[in-house]
């Protein structure tokens, strides 16, 4: 359910990029999705395959997903650790003053068009 909401944002954003670049069809779009972004690849792809048909420019656009690892940083001991394994508590010093460095991404990396000439 959540994936469907964000899928519409992707359709809207890539449509805008296509318009700005004078493109009338997009062949693929690459997304960067962090491990803790809360988005599941399979569900996003299902939503995409349904939602892409709503716009002419995306109706045949293939979705490519690149997953990014989640990493947090501890303010107390200045070390990095895997967010998936340890959450918000530092495994080295037990401190809670940590923040996410990366892993919450939901980015449109690029769009592509095949030129079959």
């Amino acid at each position: 359910m959540h994936e469907l909401g964000v899928t519409f944002y992707v359709v809207r954003d890539v449509k805008k990029v296509a318009e700005e670049n004078g493109i009338d069809r997009i062949d693929f779009v690459t997304l960067e999705i962090g491990e803790v972004s809360g988005v599941i690849n399979e569900q996003l792809t299902d939503c995409w395959n349904w939602a892409r048909k709503k716009e002419k420019v995306t109706e045949n656009t293939e979705l490519i997903i690149e997953n990014l690892e989640a990493v947090s940083f501890c303010e107390c001991c200045q070390r990095e650790f895997g967010t998936i394994d340890y959450g918000k508590t530092c495994p080295y010093c037990g401190g809670g003053n940590t923040y996410l460095l990366r892993g919450n991404e939901f980015n449109i990396k690029e769009i592509g068009v095949y030129d079959n000439t």
């Binding site: 944002y9 890539v14 939901f106 980015n107 449109i108 690029e110 769009i111 592509g112 030129d115």
Partner: peptide, 9 residues
């Protein structure tokens, strides 16, 4: 032809 977007949704 690839157009780089690099923008968060």
């Amino acid at each position: 032809k690839v157009i780089e977007v690099h923008e968060s949704v």
